[in-house]
Computed example of a mutant assay.
Amino acid sequence: MSESKKMAGGMTRANGAILIAAVLLLAGAIGYAIWRDSAPGSDGAAAQPTAAPSDQLAALEARTRSEPNSADAWMQLGAARFDLGNFGGAATAYEKAVGLSPESAGLWSALGEARVMASQSDPMPPAALQAFDKAIALDPRDPRARYFRAVKKDVGGDHKGAIADWFALLEDTPQGAPWEADLRRTIEQVGAIHKIEVAGRLAKTQARPLTPNEIPVAARAIPGPSRSDMEAASQLPKGQQDAMIQGMVDGLETKLKANPADVDRWIMLMRSRMTLGETAKAAQALKDGIAANPGAAGRLKAQAQMLGVPGA
């Protein structure tokens, strides 16, 4: 949220290094600390080839034609378009989704974000604010909508009001949530720009404790990667980093095909997809995880909401 335009960014070199270091830590293991910027390990099996983004997009568009009354189909198309930077197209798809599932706060806030990103001039177009208001009416705790409503205050000149709202969001943010650091950075940046003292309050403000459903997947007696492991991973050329990361995720999906009842791995897959910026695939992982484990739907949804998975 450091740029006031999105809840979470895509893959960075630092994230890539940490994800690769996870291979050294978790090769063949079950579970990891979900709130670290890491990804699940693979057992060294060769990665399965994946479809090109254009092929994946075409498949999602075909699905909306065959299932025009499926909110899930339109939501995944919206997420895929968003991932590819087609924010106007994402907004159009999300509009279809909320029309079919108007009680989903997550869909409304995703629509609002797409409308913000699609705007060429107004940093907070009225249509985006309307979507965020809808989300808040359905779920007053929706973090994306709360964040952007505070952005509206900031761009409107109420910088202290925006900072107060961001602090309130920070207090309601689960400990270690992916957007916590960016939220703190936003508060710092806006405070510095407008000469509002925030350092003392930031030092005292802590994210809230996790609820039972939010408790992360715990690493099971597995030591963390060493500093030398991390440094070695960070020195890999970007192409090798990307290939290694994709191999990890593909290996995880292979394990889930063999054992779809492993709820922890579904959470890992969602986390990995969101870290890679593949929000549509994260949404599909949520759907597939719930289908395979209906009794764990509450936990899967709680984890997905904290990760920012669209529609969660």
Rank of each mutant, 00 (worst) to 15 (best):
Q130T: 10
A219N: 03
K195I: 05
G78W: 06
N15F: 03
R220M: 04
D229C: 07
A21Q: 13
L24N: 10
L183G: 09
M268P: 00
Q206K: 15
D158G: 09
V190R: 11
D229G: 14
A93S: 15
R220P: 03
S226D: 12
A304C: 14
G28E: 11
D142V: 03
L307V: 10
L202E: 07
S109K: 05
G44I: 08
V155E: 14
V249E: 14
K287T: 12
P68H: 01
E113F: 12
D242S: 13
R201D: 15
A80P: 01
M117D: 04
L169F: 03
S4R: 14
G289M: 00
K281P: 01
V116N: 13
D122W: 05
G41D: 08
G289C: 00
R227A: 13
A291M: 02
M274S: 02
P294M: 03
D55W: 02
G247K: 02
G10K: 05
R36S: 14
P212Q: 03
A258V: 02
D182W: 02
P310I: 02
S109G: 06
T254R: 14
A261W: 00
S109L: 04
R185F: 06
G308Q: 08
K255A: 13
R265A: 13
I222T: 15
S104P: 14
A285K: 00
A71T: 07
L276T: 09
A105I: 12
W266L: 00
Y94R: 11
A233V: 10
P68W: 01
G28T: 07
G78H: 08
R265Y: 00
N69K: 08
T173Q: 08
G99P: 08
P310N: 07
